[in-house]
């Protein structure tokens, strides 16, 4: 108990020091920031609805990039994560697979977008590939850990029927992990829609480019319209994933 209190106090002290170094105790600066936030909010109102067609088209491109990128990344991450499952494949194979996933995960999505802009030029193709690469890194790790947690008794029972490794993946590992596979995929899609909205900043297509233009030309009322549109898309996605979870996931025994 005393040790727990000591650890909590230590964390609190460390947090205070870090916050101080980051400027969180600079009252003048924070007050100025609050004033600026008020001005910015005022300048955003009312949102300018005249940009709806342009913003809507750009946002649709972002949704397309996110959907295609997420699905492509998902398709690559599945075999990679199966190869990274230690109780199905030997240590050299699973370690190599995990190393590849870790390498991909090291690069943030914005940097992937820049790299693909260099490789395939400006536009949504670069953005889609960037989203796909980031998705591979993330999902391959999550899925490999998920597959490793498959109940060994089920694996033993089905292996005992003479099933091969491929059979085990198809009929045990994937169905047993179906819930988490779907949940993580939906989470990734939601995340990618938010993340892809800034890829246009580096020329990788989507609504980010429009946002960047409105920010640079100080057209905050137009920016507000774009942000509201993104909010609507995110809310629709939340509703859609909640419906999919209800429709497809395991439910407790009735």
């Amino acid at each position: 108990m005393r040790t727990d209190l000591f650890i909590m106090a230590l964390v609190a002290v460390l947090l205070s020091i870090v916050l101080g170094q980051l400027g969180f105790f600079d009252a003048a600066r924070l007050t100025k920031g609050l004033q600026n936030m008020g001005i910015l909010t005022w300048e955003m109102l009312p949102p300018d609805a005249s940009v709806l067609p342009v913003a809507g088209e750009a946002l649709w491109e972002t949704v397309q990039m996110s959907f295609a990128g997420t699905m492509l990344g998902f398709l690559v991450s599945l075999p990679l994560s199966v190869l990274g499952t230690r109780h199905l494949f030997s240590a050299p194979v699973s370690n190599l697979s995990r190393l590849i996933a870790a390498g991909i995960r090291t690069v943030p999505v914005l940097l992937w977008a820049i790299l693909f802009v260099i490789l395939v030029g400006l536009g949504p193709l670069a953005g889609t590939l960037g989203v796909a690469a980031y998705t591979v890194g993330y999902l391959a790790k999550i899925y490999a850990e998920l597959f490793e947690g498959t109940d060994p008794e089920i694996v033993e029972a089905v292996r005992g029927t003479g099933a091969s490794r491929l059979h085990l993946v198809r009929f045990v590992v994937l169905p047993e992990g179906a819930n988490a596979i779907l949940t993580q995929l939906l989470f990734m899609l939601e995340y990618n829609i938010r993340a892809s909205s800034i890829l246009g900043f580096v020329g990788a297509g989507g609504v980010g480019f429009v946002m960047q233009v409105y920010l640079q030309t100080l057209e905050y009322r137009r920016l507000a319209t774009v942000l509201l549109l993104i909010l609507v898309v995110v809310l629709i996605m939340d509703g859609l994933s909640a419906w999919m979870r209800r429709r497809f996931l395991l439910t407790p025994q009735s």
């Binding site: 008794e153 089920i154 029972a157 029927t161 003479g162 091969s164 009929f171 169905p175 047993e176 819930n179």
Partner: peptide, 24 residues
Amino acid sequence: YIPQQLGLVRNLTSLENVLMGALG
């Protein structure tokens, strides 16, 4: 081999689970 917890794949149907016996 029938393990203690039976080793059935919960997310598959009864028929699909029985068909696991033919995989070999």
